[in-house]
Structures are given as C-alpha cells and as structure tokens.
C-alpha cells in the first residue's frame, strides 16, 4: 500500500516524452541497443564469476609450485623456512593461531553483539537507539590498521593488569599462565578481533531481531510475559539462524584480518600452551610479516598459505549466506 502512495510522489520527474518519438521510428536500433545493454550487464555479472574462479586458479597454481618443493609436510611442519635449501614450511602453527584467535573473538563478541542488538531493538529508549546504531555503523568503518595501532599502543599496556590477575588465579591451568612481558599474545589478538567484528554481528542480528513478527511479541505480552520472557520466547527463537549466520560473517572477518594482528602479535613459529604468552601466528599475519623479505619462492609459499585461508573463508561465508538465504525465503522478508 505504501508503494502506491509513493508512486504518485515519484512519478512526476520521470516521463520524458521527447526521446520516445525517435525510438519508435527506429525499432531495429533500439533492439540492438537492448542487446548491447543486456550483453554488457550480463558480461559484468559473468566477469565477477570469472574473477572468483581466477582467484582460485591462480592461487592454486602458484601454491602448487611452492608445495611441490616443500621438504617438510605442508600441513604439519612447525617451521617457515623458505630461504634455506631444501625449503621447509608448514601451516600447522598458523592454522592453530588463526583458529584459536578467531574462536576467542567469537566467544567474546557474539554474546555482547547479541546483547547490543537486543538493546537497540527492544531495550533502548527510542531517542537513544537511532544515534547508537549510527555510531556502531561508524565503528564498522574504522580501518583495521587504526585498530591495530590502537591495539598495540593502548590495549596491550592496559591488558597486563588483567593478565597478571588471570595468571594469579588461573595460572595453574597452564592455558592462562603468564610469564610477564608485553601482552602481545593470541588472547590479546582475540580480544582485539572481538572488538573489530562486534559491529558486523550487531548489525546483522539487529536486522533479524527487527523482523520478528509484532504478533509473536504481542501474543507473549498478552499472556503476561515480562520483557525478558518475550525476548526468550519469541525474539531469540525467531532470530536464531540470523544470529548464527551473523556470527559466521564475523568469523569470516576474524579469520582474514591481517593488519590488526600483524601490529599486535609478536609472532613465533611454535605453539604455546598458554594463550597469554606472546607467540604463535595467523595465516594473514604471517603473510604480511614475511612478505617483505620473501624471495619469489617465498612469495609462492605465502600464496599457498593464503590459498588455505581463502578456502576456509569461502566455506565459512558460503555457509553463512546459505543460512541467510534460506531464512529469507522462509520468512518472506525482503520482498
């Protein structure tokens, strides 16, 4: 119904009778025009697919050049020596670091992001929620290198207090022990990544929560439910798949984040038992840190690790999108 009202608003500026007379006389020309235009637009659609395919093919080709000369095992070697003969490199440490830091980031960010999304849609006073949503959008626009700079020069010094406390009370677990020194560890990276992926998870969850049918909520309210019970009984079940896919989009971001990790982490090529001690590495960070000194072969080896990252993010993002799309068809939103 609102389409029809706006239609009358939007209609006046558009009809331009002038050119029509000409096109009517040259119908053949217009049909060629149509064909050219369709060709152009379909061509760019196909070009996008070609680019995606080309990314996979070229990365795989250069990666195969490197892996075939690798004298360690690409999957399990705990080293990255591409300049020695024979070269030995493997992605075990990188895979570990990437997974651990992303999991930490998800564990911290998802609950908070869902909380903020609920805050914006169901708790905040109306006057507040608009500006806050706006600020969160801006937060998403802050470049990752700035997060990195802030993380390395502000966050790291501030975390040593927390790390000392964790070590004091939970050091006996081994996972949370700390030997002192700068807090440039995988846990720090995870915290920073959590801050960085918070906006995207919040935004997507907020959209989903906003689509919850008003009737569901009112039905719950009419039964005497408190606000929390409304959220638990109608909002969260409706939004579950949306939150899952939002988290996976955030996970995709966290997995591929480069500069923030490269500035904050002090990398080593081994796996530390403690999350608090500096060391470890991630795929993207390793590429950025090693690139400047890499020979052409070294670059190929880095491309091989990039290919692994590409495949992982492809799977994560593809799965997230599939969940979102299924939801879309089901809910009839976004008509």
């Amino acid at each position: 119904m609102d389409i029809s009202t706006q239609h009358t608003d939007a209609a006046p500026p558009t009809p331009r009778p002038g050119p029509d007379a000409r096109t009517r006389t040259s119908r053949g020309a217009s049909r060629t025009g149509d064909r050219i235009f369709l060709g152009l637009s379909r061509g760019s659609g196909i070009l996008l697919l070609v680019i995606m395919a080309a990314i996979a093919v070229f990365l795989a080709y250069r990666a195969s050049l490197a892996i075939s000369k690798d004298h360690g095992s690409f999957l399990t070697t705990f080293e990255w020596n591409t300049n020695i003969l024979p070269p030995q490199f493997g992605i075990a440490v990188l895979a570990f670091g990437t997974v651990v830091s992303s999991v930490i980031a998800m564990a911290l960010a998802v609950p908070v992001a869902v909380g903020i999304a609920l805050f914006l849609t169901h708790y905040a006073p109306r006057r507040l929620s608009g500006p806050i949503a706006y600020v969160i959008d801006l937060l998403a626009a802050v470049p990752s290198i700035v997060y990195g700079l802030w993380g390395a020069l502000v966050l790291v010094p501030h975390l040593s207090g927390l790390y000392g406390w964790l070590d004091h009370y939970f050091g006996w677990t081994g996972v949370l022990s700390w030997q002192g020194g700068a807090a440039r560890s995988l846990l720090t990276v995870g915290i920073l990544l959590a801050i960085m992926i918070l906006p995207i998870i919040t935004n997507v969850s907020r959209e989903v929560f906003r689509q919850v049918p008003r009737m569901h909520e009112e039905a719950a309210l009419a039964l005497g439910a408190t606000r929390w019970e409304v959220v638990r009984m109608s909002v969260l079940p409706f939004g579950r798949s949306g939150v899952i896919s939002a988290s996976m989009l955030g996970l995709g971001r966290a997995l591929g984040e480069t500069m923030a990790v490269a500035t904050v982490l002090s990398p080593t090529f081994d796996i530390k038992a403690s999350l608090l001690d500096p060391g470890g590495g991630t795929f993207a960070q390793n590429i950025a840190s090693k690139f400047n000194e890499a020979t052409e072969f070294g670059q190929d080896a880095l491309i091989a690790s990039g290919l692994v990252l590409f495949v992982i993010t492809l799977i994560v993002n593809g799965a997230a999108r599939m969940i979102i799309n299924r939801r879309k068809e089901y809910s009839g939103a976004n008509a």
């Binding site: 080309a54 990365l59 080709y61 591929g256 480069t258 590429i287 990252l309 492809l314 993002n317 997230a320």
Partner: peptide, 16 residues
C-alpha cells in the same frame, strides 16, 4: 561470498 574475501587474499591474487 566475494564480500567476505579477506583483503590479503585479494592482494595475493593480484600478486600471483
């Protein structure tokens, strides 16, 4: 899916 490509992977592609 392309929206989620890590920027470093796009860089590696053009590099290769």
């Amino acid at each position: 899916v392309m929206t989620g490509i890590p920027s470093i992977v796009a860089g590696l592609f053009v590099l290769s």
